[in-house]
Design a protein around this nucleic acid. Structure first.
Lengths: 252, 252
DNA sequence: AGCCGATCTGAGCGGAACTTGAGGATCACG
DNA sequence: CGTGATCCTCAAGTTCCGCTCAGATCGGCT
């Protein structure tokens, strides 16, 4: 889940990036309002799910950045600031912020609030949203071809038979199963399953694919696409070029 | 704009209804969680844009009402309560609340927050989104596998034998027992059982899990999920793996 | 203050998970 | 049909992670 952090204090930012990263966010750090607005123009990448707007001292600026963001995008904004007075809170919220948190804040609460607005922001926004397709990131148990994937319980069953998977195996399958038929490139797989872009030199990916195939025991399910990556074969033939595949999270 | 106010104190409610009415809201006042849930079933009227959930004293109750609402509807919820501690805030937000305001609050800020969540509010799609983390949050004593957990008395018994647990041990067990089978990640456990985003440096979590296992003396109950977290093994296989009702007629 | 249980930390162990390397199989392309 | 690239498998390493024990620190209570 991508998150845009707007923070001018390097040390605070570094700490936040570390914690947020550990909690599964892919954080982009903007040092100024200008940089933040640049980062928000659609560029084909996955859009940001939340903006953490933490402009400490140049107070007037923070509000303006918020309303500029709001003018161009529907992305949820959480203002984080030392200005605790009620008038500022009201002003910030009326400018379009989704939440307003004052320092000092509790890290756990901030995380909970981030999740709350991200959860809500996933719904179609009234304001002009530049990037139409948010990542599907399906909720309930995925199911296809007799394979049932329960993300909450981290369990997988094939035709009712429970199949224990290791961490990497599960993450790998969950990723591929997100959109059966779509080819996931090696780099993409590494960046999603292995945190932090690390290009595995060895045969790591192949080995994990191999053991996944063994455990699922469904020959032909996981298909290698030579020179590109892997994909899951959907139960139905696979949408040809004729009709458009509904969800396509794969980026180029 | 219709708004549902859940408040058990008549005087507080009357005041709120007056103020909100003056600000353009059409307020329906529910005196209990039960009444609130009734009011939320679609009846052809314009749906509520926001729920103000203000359960003052019966504290545990408020959370349950919230998760019940979330289970059946996507309507934005703002919790308003005297419980200001961080754990309650986090818990409320994780249960699906969109905002959490503590008393005493400023009326202007509350109004701004109501507008913020209403603005963001999902189009009240007919079929409610099955709550992100709609934890059943069982009311009475949890029971499973011969373990009885009494949240109010903070007592636990195994096969009738009383097992004294320390604070952390109890909180840990209560959290895991909320949804047996579901894997709780380390970060999640820390944010719920420990205060805030405190990331345990040492072997803290493992030690507590260890002593919990010892005291319960039920080998295999608390399972570690390598690299992720922990979970309780439910007595029944799992609601997911054993297919509940797959309408798929083509079985082989 | 002094006691005692609860909680936290550090070191070491063992095993599961992950990575790497080499050889063989398979595929794309000339 | 030959050749190189890519993928698969097997069998070692190597790292990572959870468990336990023991000691230190914290905090409530008498």
């Amino acid at each position: 889940m991508r998150l845009l952090l707007v923070e001018d204090d390097e040390r605070v930012a570094a700490a936040l990036v570390a914690v947020l990263g550990r909690h599964g966010f892919q954080v982009r750090h903007a040092r100024s309002g200008h940089e933040a607005l640049d980062a928000l123009v659609p560029d084909g990448n996955e859009p940001y799910r939340v903006v953490l707007l933490d402009l400490g001292l140049p107070d007037r600026d923070g509000f303006e950045v918020c309303s500029r963001i709001r003018a161009g995008s529907g992305v949820p904004v959480i203002m984080v600031t030392a200005r605790a007075d009620v008038r500022s809170r009201i002003h910030g919220l009326n400018l379009g912020a989704d939440d307003y948190v004052t320092k000092p804040y509790d890290m756990g609460e901030l995380l909970a609030r981030i999740h709350a607005v991200a959860r809500r922001g996933a719904a179609p926004s009234a304001v002009a949203v530049p990037a139409p397709d948010a990542v599907p990131q399906q909720r309930g148990p995925l199911e296809s071809r007799g394979i049932r994937i329960d993300r909450e319980r981290r369990r997988v069953s094939v035709d009712g038979r429970d199949v224990p998977l290791t961490r990497k195996e599960f993450d790998l399958l969950a990723l591929l199963a997100q959109s059966p038929g779509v080819v996931y490139r090696r780099e993409q797989i590494f960046s999603e399953v292995w945190r932090s872009g690390w290009e595995g030199n060895g045969r790591t990916l192949e080995v994990h694919i191999g053991s996944l195939r063994n455990k699922l025991a469904l020959p032909g399910l996981v298909e290698a696409v030579r020179g590109v990556g892997y994909r899951l074969i959907p139960d139905r033939p696979a949408p040809t070029a004729a009709d458009p595949a509904p969800p396509a999270p794969a980026e180029h």
